[in-house]
Design a protein around this nucleic acid. Structure first.
Lengths: 224, 224
DNA sequence: GTTAATTGTTAAGTTCGCTTAACTTTTTAT
DNA sequence: ATAAAAAGTTAAGCGAACTTAACAATTAAC
């Protein structure tokens, strides 16, 4: 069992590499990582070298980083802990959506595998966190992906269901709360104004015209 | 609001100072702190100086350390988080008593005040953790102390109630589990063998003879 | 009340995770 | 194709939290 204990900085680095690698199969660039983690590019290079000697990432000078098998395992475990905590904080402690991310960001690094398992059991093995992101299981596998897209991508009026609110902005969540825009609820997309980049919806018997910035953060699915 | 964020090492140091100071009004010696925290005496001296310039402890060369008002406040908050997590882990996640300490030791440093408050509310504002230790409230005040002593201190046969199991030994907790020795249960102290330092009890209709080492770890109260 | 043991301090050095500055390689724009 | 911009690397250095080693102050033992 090669479970070398990995530091907080390393865990965050691995998570970030995972994030970029899963969006861009080439891998994660040093600049992306540095700006995401709020560290200098040289610090990112150093960390890449260090994790490379620990066999957690594959690093070659001047080319994008990728996770090794071990590195991916570690990243998935941290993501699992993060999303389990978010679920707990929101569903059990009733914490606001915009707060749970920050809290989970801290807790994820102080959570043993055994605690994560017990938490998962208590929450009844949730498959998605309150933002709608998939929660890896004990062995790091993600649940089947839901067919979800940002509202901004929808081209024709239809009935849609909110899968997830993808934002870290407190004011966005406040706006959603006030208008009953929340995970799980269904609504009708009435009209699209392609030139103005606006979307008219009817939700809880209220019509709202949303701008595109807002719509990008509302992730929906078509089949009720 | 002087809530300067304090590092993990500093938090643990403050907790340790509190521990010694509350047992020994003189304060905490450098050696005690060093051995409790598993660091060298020089590291303890350095930390004492650092926290002294931060006004969290009162430090003078060659004399025992004491907490400042601010330092005590900080220590109580960490202890509060620790004991809330222990309560949660044991009562909600059903984690074994010998495990909860280690897990709480990590979580306590990754817990905001706001999360601690929500956790306390969810647990219905518990006054004592699963070991029986008092949980400070939001403002750092401890609940009224129960009139509890180690079983080893009892001098005459009587009916006693277990308040707390004070140990970090897994085998001790296993022994207790096997014999139904647990927090909240009442039992009869049948006989004391002062020369042999042994105590005979009847618990759940079974007679058990305990040695002093075990009895020191079983904290009881006289009034039912 | 010496002296030996314990306790505490200081100094010098290490590792980790960063920084800034100077430089090199790669990419992009024209 | 080349020059400018962007991205990446290297080197030197810093603060936090440690270490070991040498030494000084306090306490305890006889």
């Amino acid at each position: 069992m090669t479970h070398n204990k990995v530091s907080l900085s390393s865990e965050n680095f691995l998570k970030a590499v995972y994030r970029y690698e899963s969006r861009n199969k080439k891998g994660a660039s040093i600049s992306d990582l540095a700006s995401r983690l709020n560290i200098s590019k040289s610090a990112a290079t150093d960390m890449a070298k260090k994790l490379s000697t620990n066999k957690l990432v594959k690093y070659e000078k001047y080319s994008p980083l990728k996770l090794s098998t071990q590195g991916k395992k570690q990243a998935m475990q941290v993501i699992r802990k993060h999303r389990l905590w978010e679920t707990f904080l929101h569903e059990v402690l009733d914490m606001d959506l915009f707060e749970v991310h920050r809290e989970a960001e801290a807790l994820e690094h102080s959570t043993s595998e055994s605690l994560a398992d017990k938490l998962a059991a208590f929450l009844n093995y949730p498959k998605f966190d309150p933002h709608g992101d998939p929660i890896p299981d004990k062995s790091g596998n993600l649940p089947k992906h839901r067919n979800s897209v940002p509202l901004s991508e929808i081209k024709t009026p239809s009935i849609l269901k909110i899968i997830r609110l993808d934002s870290f902005s407190e004011s966005f969540f406040n706006f959603c709360k006030q208008n009953n825009i929340r995970k799980g609820i269904s609504f009708k997309l009435e009209q699209i104004f392609p030139n103005e980049d606006m979307f008219e919806i009817e939700i809880s018997d209220k019509k709202i015209v949303l701008n595109k910035a807002i719509c990008k953060q509302i992730i929906v699915t078509k089949n009720s």
